[in-house]
Design a protein around this nucleic acid. Structure first.
Length: 553
RNA sequence: GCGCCCGUAGCUCAAUUGGACAGAGCACUGGGCUUCGGACCCAGGUGUUGGGGGUUCGAAUCCUCCCGGGCGCGCCA
């Protein structure tokens, strides 16, 4: 719940009492209802600066406020110096009307206006199907992108295709070997090659028109053709899987194309000009230790080829050149060790420390019946992301991945995921939405026609008031989630709202006078306004998560 | 050995970024259930926040040292 006018009034009062001009006032919603609706710790912060007693200061601050004009019912000084405010009903009702009026835009913010953000995620090697870890990264990355868009940023979702490394040669060799095996020849999958069943499928598919190119004595040109086709097919498959998860990208950038451009040379040149590159033992090193990395890093090996790091730097450099103010990468936990060196490299190029940011997503463990479902890529038998989405659906997959903080290792409980009851949090939230839509149908109500400008004083129950306060807290939660890059704040919030809504609603099963429908017109209408506002928040919240808000279930 | 992440109720996780008596959902126990949509509703209680020390009006949150888990530490990608 926000109250900008109260914040401003408090700031003014604080300045009157000698606080600095840039004094910041933060209002919080206390967990304890006895502590009111909004609490200010201002007096305690100020007491330190001014060398005065907090409670005394609190009293003087309150004296300087026009409570009635601010729609504040009461202001109490409590504990060590908190000021606890209780808002008036009119404040809540005005807020509720605002929610209904804003509709799909409720919760939208503009603090990101003018800022261009590149969010890079998944970026899997084009050597096979995506696994569940990629799925978590995809859900998190896409949702962070949605959060940033909703808070006013200009966002680009990007997938970097590592189509240039030696792993691609292994892919081609593996397909070729499988092809020859299918032809009855003896051929072995190369060391470090790919064993999965999908390689056999690829071999079959490509054999229809590239049989000669798959032979052992294929020409380099032939191999290049196989290479292109194989990459194309694998990426296409990955893209479809992601689409099934409702993840779509604005850009696919290819490492091969990057290498063919002059980007890498330009980046090296720029680093050289800055005097940050030196030679040692035949290799060329970047002095990342100047920027808080543990050790310097090799960019060009002694044999003249690039380390993987150099194209990566050039690629991220390119993001800056394309005009992005911020580059956020979603990385798996196994890459966290690379954060300091990439940050250092960006600073070496003269970019702000804040330009590059990595969100580290921890590993996923899949369980069924309390047992881990193993996925071992080497043995070729693994649970792919596709399998998971096919089994439990996009909504559940996304929700489960988003429900926990990215840094938290998580257990994906397949049994719970398939549960179609309120035990399963995603159903609970979706159900709350479906139930609201059902109320409209049952009451033959046009939700667009609900008169939210009408008198709302029939809303007398505290349960309704509490729910309104929750509803009015949505924009803050959205902003906090976007700033901290933590989608799970949204799921936690929605679950809480769904619980409140459900118990408010269920009160009607015990006491008919508490139902929405079938009351005196003014009462029904006022309750419908609450319903409508709840629906708005549930829908907007689910939209942010990329999860459907169903009409019925 | 060094670095990063994590450790919160029996389980899975929160905790408004330093705020007040640490909260939800499962699970558990008891009581309801004649329907605006359910295997549903209501009421219970559960904690030395892994442990010790420190910083301050105030710490799960910051610092430090231990314990335990995960992941990293290539001129591999």
């Amino acid at each position: 719940m926000q109250h900008p006018r109260l914040e401003a009034a408090l700031a003014r009062a604080a300045r009157d009492l000698g606080a600095a001009d840039d004094v910041t006032v933060r209002l919080e919603r206390p967990r304890e209802t006895a502590h009111g609706d909004l609490a200010a710790n201002l007096a305690m912060v100020l007491a330190q600066q001014l060398g005065r007693k907090p409670r005394e200061l609190a009293g003087e601050l309150v004296d300087r406020l026009d409570l009635q004009a601010l729609q504040i019912e009461s202001a109490e000084i409590a504990g060590p110096g908190f000021i606890n405010f209780r808002v008036s009903r009119d404040f809540l009702f005005d807020g509720l009307r605002h929610v209904c009026r804003a509709g799909r835009d409720y919760g939208r913010g503009d603090w990101g206006a003018g800022s261009r953000v590149n969010v890079e995620f998944v970026s899997a090697n084009p050597t096979g199907p995506l696994h569940v870890g990629h799925g978590r990264g995809a859900a998190v990355g896409d949702t962070i992108a949605r959060l940033l868009e909703f808070t006013g940023h200009d966002v680009c979702r990007e997938f970097y295709v590592n189509d240039a490394g030696s792993q691609i040669d292994k892919l081609v060799d593996s397909i070729s070997a499988r092809h020859r095996q299918l032809e009855g020849e003896s051929a072995a999958i190369p060391e470090g090659g790919y064993h999965g069943e999908y390689i056999v499928d690829l071999a079959r598919e490509l054999a229809s028109d590239l049989a000669d190119e798959l032979a052992a004595d294929a020409s380099p040109e032939g191999r290049a053709r196989v290479r292109r086709r194989a990459i194309e097919r694998v990426i296409e498959e990955q893209r479809r899987t992601l689409e099934a998860l409702r993840v779509q990208f604005d850009e696919f950038r290819s490492e091969t194309e990057l290498r063919e451009s002059s980007s890498i040379e330009e980046t090296v040149e720029q680093l050289t000009e800055r005097g940050l590159i030196y030679e040692r033992e035949g290799a060329r090193w970047l002095r990342t230790t100047d920027f808080e990395d543990d050790k310097d890093r090799v960019l060009v090996k002694s044999d003249g080829s690039y380390t993987y790091f150099l194209p990566d730097i050039a690629y991220h450099h390119d993001k800056a050149k394309r005009g992005f103010d911020t580059a956020i990468d979603i990385w798996g936990a196994d890459h966290h060790g690379y954060v300091p060196r990439m940050t250092a490299a960006m600073r070496a190029l003269g970019l702000e420390k804040e330009f590059f940011e990595a969100v580290i997503v921890q590993l996923v463990r899949i369980e069924r019946g309390g047992e881990e479902v193993k996925f071992s890529k080497r043995a070729g038998e693994f649970v792919t992301l596709r399998d998971l989405v096919d089994e439990v659906g996009a909504d559940v997959t996304r929700y489960f991945f988003l429900e926990r903080g990215p840094q938290q290792q998580m257990v994906f409980d397949l049994d719970l995921a398939k549960e179609r009851s309120e035990k399963n949090p995603v159903y609970k939230v979706q159900y709350a939405h479906a139930r609201i839509r059902s109320v409209y149908r049952r009451g033959d109500i046009d939700p667009e026609g609900i008169d939210f400008d009408a008198d709302l004083s029939p809303l007398v129950e505290t349960s309704a008031h509490e729910m309104i306060k929750t509803i009015l807290g949505f924009p803050e939660v959205v902003e906090a989630a976007a700033r901290s890059r933590e989608p799970h704040r949204i799921t936690a919030y929605l679950e809480n709202l769904a619980n409140e809504l459900n118990s408010w609603y269920h009160a009607g099963t015990r006491d008919a006078s508490l139902r929405v429908l079938g009351q005196e017109e003014a009462v029904t209408n006022a309750r419908l306004v609450v319903v409508r506002a709840s629906e708005t928040v549930l829908r907007n919240g689910l939209e942010l998560l990329g999860i459907e808000a169903p009409e019925s279930m």
